[in-house]
Design a protein around this nucleic acid. Sequence first.
DNA 1: TCCTTATCGAGAGCAGTGCTCTCTGCTGTA
DNA 2: TACAGCAGAGAGCACTGCTCTCGATAAGGA
Lengths: 239, 239
Amino acid sequence: MCAIISAMPAPSIRARIRAEMIDEIKAVARRHLAAEGANLSLRAVARDMGMVSSALYRYFASRDDLLTALILDGYNALGDAVESADAAVTDRGQLRARWLSATRAVRDWALANPAEYALLYGSPVPGYAAPQDTIAAAARTPVVLAGILTDGYASGTVTGPGFAPSGAGPEAVRADLARTRDGIAPGLPEELLHAGLTSWLQLFGVVSFELFGQFNNVIDARAEFFDQQMELMADLMGI
Amino acid sequence: MCAIISAMPAPSIRARIRAEMIDEIKAVARRHLAAEGANLSLRAVARDMGMVSSALYRYFASRDDLLTALILDGYNALGDAVESADAAVTDRGQLRARWLSATRAVRDWALANPAEYALLYGSPVPGYAAPQDTIAAAARTPVVLAGILTDGYASGTVTGPGFAPSGAGPEAVRADLARTRDGIAPGLPEELLHAGLTSWLQLFGVVSFELFGQFNNVIDARAEFFDQQMELMADLMGI
DNA sequence: TCCTTATCGAGAGCAGTGCTCTCTGCTGTA
DNA sequence: TACAGCAGAGAGCACTGCTCTCGATAAGGA
């Protein structure tokens, strides 16, 4: 990070202070988000910083802009967590251990940052369109998960899914899968990719339902249930 | 409905007008929700009805109360749709057809009422606790889905899941499953119930991801992909 | 070193929000 | 028919996002 800054041309004092200011605003906003939930108030953030609300507009053009920055940071924080959880499994051939470690990282991060998770994977704010930056950041987690599968396939450990429907599926879906494969899972067979997609959906389905209160009065042993689901998905993918 | 009203004791004129007023407020609010997204404005609703905002408080104690009423209606509307989609399959032994029909009804309703769906299954409003009424209404959809499985098991068509992990799973989860079975799926074997839960999660995971924009740049053939996923889940449950 | 220029924060203000309180006119009910 | 209770209006409070203007300040070129 220091290296990055010093590599930048002319890190003028003003620019550095400005960057610190932006970081602090985002930090305070994150705190408010965690405390109050989704209703982030610009004025309250400004108040917390000893500033007047209009001053914030020097740094963020609008409340949506601030939220977008938080979303981008959120995807990257989640991506960091998942990447290092996967990397923590030193024996790279232990695909199931990597899968469990990475998916648990998703759940742990979500439980630790529920409001941010809701920002990323909950109902989108009306009229909000994700800028291109967020798409790349959002892809980091799927990339890690897909990497586990491609590693297994490349090493020959995994040849196909542990469970798959007969038949190739509709043509239109096959085109989507092909595009996805080119993007994040080069060379992966279609059925394996499909099982991976299913597991990806199940992962976020479980986490979202837990966080959004849909497990109330249904599942109490949440960590155990999550693990069981992820084991099932590992079986399904054949890892 | 008429029968219900006429069965009520003394449907005083005032009470009937009041009920109609409440219905109209909810209808206008639903329209606004569909048009503007989640940011429902009481004042705008009142304006649309030619009223002043304070008058609305004669009917709903707060904005949250109105939202709760909409949520309750939403669960019931979804429940209606799913129930009749299941009932539309006249041959009750066609479990897979019933499953596909019911799950498609979920997706269709969600696509037709995205803002309401987000209200039900999206990020919850901070500090909001669902009253007991909504829990019963929310259970209607799972009850239909579970009914398909219990029917199949009772008739002997289904004996166990088409795919299940070896081992019984953690004790705590087994307790949760037992409670759920007592509630909505009497007599169902544990593995089958577990497969049903997985399918339930997958169903809402897919619908939520599609509605909340997570399929952008990933899945274009959404209806086909949805069907494929639901077919896979049917295979997994062994129906 | 001085001076221009860009930046930053404050303050006032606008239109909108949820919600409360008071007042009045109407109306269903006894 | 008399009237109690209800519905709606209106004013008002505290809050929101956002805009605009205006000084103070500090950076960087002459």
